[in-house]
Design a protein around this nucleic acid. Structure first.
Lengths: 88, 88
DNA sequence: TCATGTCGCTATTAAAAACGTAGCAATATC
DNA sequence: GATATTGCTACGTTTTTAATAGCGACATGA
């Protein structure tokens, strides 16, 4: 499963999550992701870009069509996660 | 996002995926996961078990109720991933 | 024009995680 | 008692992530 390999890297899911709402600059993204190191952020962004899930726009980094489609499958997971976290 | 932190670790998604269909023993799981090292597999299993997503049964490792619920949200992602992989 | 600030990102060094292989203890099978 | 399988640990190596500093490009304002 190629996708799981890509998403199973640190911050990959978080980056998609944060970009889903709005375009973010590198530094904005960095501060949203609980201070991920710039090295890792840049590496993940490169990976996500070559995977065609994220791209660069004037306003910053944004999800591509594929990225948005992926997020739509990921989104219900967020709601579920909230309940689940509470039950730990 | 606690869930993303847990799932954003190597093999975590793959383990859930493989356990979704049937119960698997440690070694079965190991061979399904493209020869993940036993060290990592055991670490992931511990994490997933304390997270209440996976548990041990007679027949091997299985998803808990929460694990199954999570997988149901994850499943459509698999179909999507197949199409997406093709379009790379 | 020159200081000041922000931005995207690289460099570097250190710590943590994952890998790969060997193998042990326990249980089952013969 | 010999052999095999299972779950898992040990351990040395490689890869990934973290943490921090800071550079070059560009904007702003004095």
């Amino acid at each position: 499963m190629v996708l799981f390999d890509l998403l199973g890297r640190r911050w990959a899911l978080g980056i998609l999550w944060n970009l889903s709402a709005e375009a973010l600059t590198f530094r904005e993204l960095q501060s949203r992701c609980d201070t991920v190191s710039p090295t890792v952020l840049n590496t993940r962004l490169k990976e996500l870009r070559t995977a065609g899930l994220v791209e660069k726009a004037e306003s910053g980094y944004v999800l591509t069509g594929a990225g948005t489609a992926l997020f739509q499958h990921l989104e219900p997971l967020g709601d579920w996660a909230a309940d689940w976290t509470r039950s730990l």
